[in-house]
Nucleic acid binder design. Structure first.
Lengths: 140, 140
DNA sequence: ATGAGTGCAAAGGCTTTGCATTAGG
DNA sequence: CCTAATGCAAAGCCTTTGCACTCAT
């Protein structure tokens, strides 16, 4: 698993336990943000409460990001500076989610517009998140 | 309140009750998506359960849209074809949300990229939602 | 050794639902 | 009139928390 993630965890004064390693490995392998259900299903030996607690720790350590894609439960993915900036393709019917990268020039346009709009309203440290929605192959 | 909304409600075979009119008026006045808590607070005579139920009806009638901005509760706003296409400016610290319109050329760039990316993955009826995140005046 | 992490079960908090009553068309 | 809508309270569901036990350092 990622050396960077482990270092960041230590840097936050947190221990690198087996459960946390397992979480990081699962999230690294995924090509989409995972639900708690996904995670526990792929590793039934992990206690659900520990998964919740460790994801909070990983989030606070800047390793993991919690994303709400519109379904009724949270999804988790590695922080963007451990992967790459990307967005999500969300099916409005079944709720499935896939990672999605946009062309660099589009990203620049969005980022520029986001920062400008934010500062105009007195917001600082502006970032953005974009979900592309539609009907997936199975649902269309 | 909006004639279009009332018509759309009727068209969906739903009754235009006092509660539903009240909801539509509140949402029309708002310049941001509202939480259930916001709504019940501004109209304490509305029963919370009826608000939930009516928002489902309004959503299924294509009048209201449920948005998850990352906080722990849902927010509701009028559907875009009753208002205008817009996005949200979300404070990552306090969770406050404001409506945000972007320049038309930026929207076109985003929409084009979104549709292209979606169709490449086999998605149809592609749309998009964008949240600009940052720290608001009070939290910065 | 010793405080953090874990697992189980119980509690929380937003949202949904059952049921008797009220009201829209 | 007759069905849908309402309000209250109870139930659901994802998530968080309490507590005793175990493990990382």
């Amino acid at each position: 698993m990622s050396v960077a993630a482990a270092g960041r965890l230590r840097g936050a004064g947190q221990r690198l336990t087996g459960n946390r390693q397992a979480l990081l490995e699962i999230l690294e392998r995924a090509d989409r943000p995972l639900t708690i259900h996904d995670i526990v299903q792929s590793r039934p030996d992990l206690a659900q409460s520990s998964v919740y607690r460790n994801l909070v720790v990983l989030e606070q350590s800047g390793i993991v990001r919690r994303v709400m894609t519109g379904g009724d439960f949270a999804r988790y993915e590695l922080d963007e500076d451990l992967t790459d900036h990307h967005h999500h393709l969300v099916c409005t019917s079944c709720g499935s989610v896939e990672d999605l990268a946009l062309p660099k020039d589009v990203e620049e346009t969005i980022g520029r517009a986001a920062r400008r709009a934010a500062s105009r309203r007195g917001f600082v440290e502006a970032d953005h998140r974009l979900d592309v929605t539609g009907l997936c192959k199975n649902c269309r």
